[in-house]
Design a protein around this nucleic acid. Structure first.
Length: 205
DNA sequence: CATGGGATTGACT
DNA sequence: GTCAATCCCATGC
């Protein structure tokens, strides 16, 4: 499968975020299927680009298809894909993967980063800070290109069919919490937080 | 130059 | 459910 091209990322961020579900994130010997994303846009205050162009946010206003990597809570690196044409500040946060290649390497890295000694496979990449630990994505890779740089995003397998996607409110933000800009692969158990899929099932579930 | 906040995680009650 | 760890950067003086 080939990398997504610049035109893929140059679209509105609310199109790109769900379109990334089912694509494959690759870094070195480790990879995973993207199962959870969130959209961020300069027009709403939860987005870092809301404050305008600064040294930090410059990349978000730059060329679509670049990586925006930043440190969260002084602890974790979070990976975003810059979207929309240059001049517009928008990006998609990659929040969870279903591990594909290099699972044992992921486990080794997660343990080295301080995780508890027992890690279920579904916990390897189930969170924005966890997936950067597992794939060893670093702050130094901020502003690298997803089109030909060290971090690659591959298109969906067209034979796999369209994934079923559910939308909901974004996680962990205090501003604009009502926007349903979080996208998950329906029923996938690698997502970073519980999803009310059982809401329509029996309570004992 | 000092300060406050944050797109999280893991451990503990 | 609660809480600390830890650092970059935007803002204000």
């Amino acid at each position: 499968m080939s990398r997504l091209d610049r035109g893929f990322y140059a679209r509105p961020v609310l199109e790109v975020a769900p379109a990334l579900i089912g694509c494959t994130l690759v870094h070195g010997a480790t990879s995973g299927t993207i199962v959870e994303t969130e959209a961020y846009h300069e027009s709403e205050p939860a987005c870092h680009a809301f404050v305008g162009v600064t040294p930090r946010t410059r990349v978000i206003f730059g060329e679509p298809g670049c990586a925006y990597v930043y440190r969260s809570y002084g602890v974790h690196a979070l990976l975003n894909a810059v979207c929309e044409p240059a001049g517009i500040g928008a990006a998609v946060l990659l929040r969870a993967l279903a591990p594909l290649d290099g699972v044992e390497l992921m486990r080794k890295r997660r343990l080295a980063a301080g995780a508890s000694e027992q890690i279920d496979d579904r916990e390897l990449c189930s969170g924005p800070g966890r997936l950067t630990q597992a794939l060893d994505v670093e702050l130094a890779e901020n502003e690298t290109s997803l089109l030909d740089g060290p971090i690659a995003v591959l298109a969906r397998d067209p034979d796999a069919g369209e994934p079923q996607i559910v939308a909901g409110p974004r996680v962990g933000i205090t501003k604009a919490p009502e926007l349903p800009w979080r996208f998950c692969l329906l029923g996938d158990r690698n997502v970073s937080r519980p999803w009310p899929w059982r809401a329509t099932s029996s309570p004992s579930g």
